[in-house]
Design a protein around this nucleic acid. Structure first.
Lengths: 359, 359
DNA sequence: CTGAAAGCGCTTACAG
DNA sequence: CTGAAAGCGCTTACAG
């Protein structure tokens, strides 16, 4: 049914390989002929069949990307940036949502292998069982954003340790001496790197600043941040903490919502800093101080690295190529100098308790 | 380099078509042989080549989806739902981000045609220039979510008119008699349908309720809602409006941010209702009353419709198949009964002005 | 400048 | 139960 080279060839009374060469702009076809062939192809609606071209060229000119959850805008933006970069270089990108489920991820990878992708980009580590399959098909892998354990040999992401350090430095610079890090029970490696950076900044103060780590959040959602904020609220009330760094903006929003319900003021009673700089961070009440990462930069670096691996002809299996981008702090109104705005939460709480012994 | 049928055949000393049949589970191969062939294929890492299979089967078993901006979670969720549905039916989904740019969308469509997609799903109408190409290649199109002009013949989306009506009914039911609809200068058809539904509810009151439409927002972002909220603020101050419906949640958040800055209380001074029920709506301060649409339902209905068109064998070119889902209202704390909480914004404003004539 | 032939990796009749 | 052959739509040497 669809029109093929033979149809065009018949129409112009030439052989299919002349038509093929003309359409691809190769030399060895007179300009007049080429013109004519082009017109006919256009008129009868000819489009080359990629499957056939792939088969004969023995390469797919396509790359796969594994995204744990495409509905996270940060991940989607990485995908978009990569799609644009690759289209420019006439590679095709297969985008697959893995639901962060190893079994389903394996199926996705097998599908991509059957499509003969030339390279695999992955947000987060692909499951270990896939390593042998990818290796045996000679498919290079670039991991982006997240990993567990050792830094993967080909990696592009932000330096979470540096981000955590920056956030803590910001709070310390504002005079806070009792600060908390609010994270999840099951920490991903990058969450724990943020915590490590946070702790390094605290340690550098040689005891002048003390910190607590609260592992109460579940899954880094707004809801979870809200539901697990109780411990933090207590500490603020008791004056044990005057500033909180959250593992991500969503958790920060959940915490802020709870603080608001508990009539704790931000930043007067407690400073809050997030991580990610999602769109909403600029418009929350108050606007959220946070650590900013540029998704499209990851996409650009990731696709560039992949393209290098594909086109340099080098043996990359023994080369490590790891790109760690430096995140940047965006100061907004959710953090402020300690004690700037009068009485602390602890003092107010104490006053309240004294006037009403039942509390 | 990659292993093919011939490699497996050589290994087991059989012809490639026996191997092919065994691996695909067709009858006519003894069970013992099949077992042996499977093992060998597994051992040497054979994976069928999709390009070759497509070529010979004369079908790609794949479908394309055009997404204007994949980083809008609502759209991404539609994509995810479709990907899951189609994978179950062993179709492959090509996800392409079009940037909402007609020229780029055309390139995307041409690419998909070269990949011989069997059907095209599109969030929003594909550009008119693509119609001829798609028709000539016999590719059915299902439009989702948005359209301009007439309802496309194959469409799945939510009934925006009904949503606008529900929102207005909600405000009227709370006793508001002066209500506003806050939308953009250049209204999309679905934004204007929401407005139509809104107006219908107002009209039904036979003049008991009056409404204003404010076309000041630009591009339905939080920022734009914030920057263009001035007109609404004035009306609230003057007592001309006690409730506002926004074209979407993002604009509602922008408006709320401005109201907060202007010390207008929600819902005491003004009720605000959004549209979309994005994740943040549950956690804004106050939580936002809004109209909810289920993205994965659109995805499920959309892919089902496409599958029907592909597999029923009917001539769908003369059949209209339009699915309009009913959205639902989610009542939260940003809307309240009129005058419930004491003095109105207008009265407070007047009092303030009297005590300070300079205002 | 143009064409005939081989072949990419598979599946599908058709023989045996 | 198994194999030889043709062919899907293209590109690439190789002739002319």
């Amino acid at each position: 049914m669809p029109i093929n080279l033979k149809d065009v060839a018949r129409e112009v009374n030439l052989s299919i390989n002349t038509v093929s060469r003309a359409l691809r702009g190769l030399q060895g076809v007179s300009e007049a002929r080429r013109q004519q062939i082009r017109e006919v192809a256009e008129r009868i609606g000819y489009r080359p069949n990629r499957a056939a071209r792939r088969l004969v060229l023995q390469r797919s000119q396509s790359i796969g990307i594994l995204v744990p959850s495409l509905n996270i805008p940060f991940f989607a933006e990485i995908d978009i940036a990569i799609q644009e970069m690759l289209q420019e270089k006439s590679y095709f990108l297969y985008t697959l949502n893995t639901r962060d489920d190893p079994a389903h991820t394996m199926e996705c990878i097998e599908l991509l292998v059957e499509h003969r992708i030339e390279g695999l980009l992955s947000i987060g580590l692909p499951p270990p069982q896939s390593a042998e399959l990818l290796r045996s098909h000679n498919i290079p892998v670039v991991v982006m954003v997240m990993f567990q354990g050792d830094l993967p040999p080909h990696f592009v992401g932000y330096d979470d340790e540096a981000g955590g350090y920056q956030a803590a430095r910001h709070l310390i610079g504002l005079g806070h001496t009792r600060i908390a890090y609010f994270t999840g029970k099951w920490e991903s490696d990058h969450a724990s790197l943020r915590r490590t950076g946070f702790s390094r900044a605290v340690d550098e103060t040689m005891g002048r600043v003390v910190s607590r780590v609260v592992f109460d959040n579940y899954d880094n959602t707004i809801r979870s941040g809200y539901q697990s904020a109780g411990g933090i609220v207590d500490m603020i009330r008791k004056g044990e903490v005057s500033a909180v760094m959250c593992v991500c903006d969503a958790v920060a929003f959940g915490l802020m919502h709870m603080l608001n319900e508990q009539e704790l003021r931000i930043p007067e009673d407690v400073s809050v800093i997030g991580y990610d700089n999602i769109e909403m961070a600029e418009f929350s009440i108050p606007p959220l101080t946070t650590i900013s990462q540029d998704a499209s930069r990851i996409g650009r670096f990731g696709s560039n690295l992949m393209l290098q691996m594909l086109e340099s002809g080098e043996d990359w299996s023994k080369v490590r190529h790891q790109v760690l981008l430096e995140p940047s702090l965006v100061a907004r109104q959710s953090t402020a100098r300690l004690g700037k705005s009068g009485e602390s939460a602890a003092r107010r709480h104490r006053a309240k308790a004294e006037s009403n012994p039942a509390v």
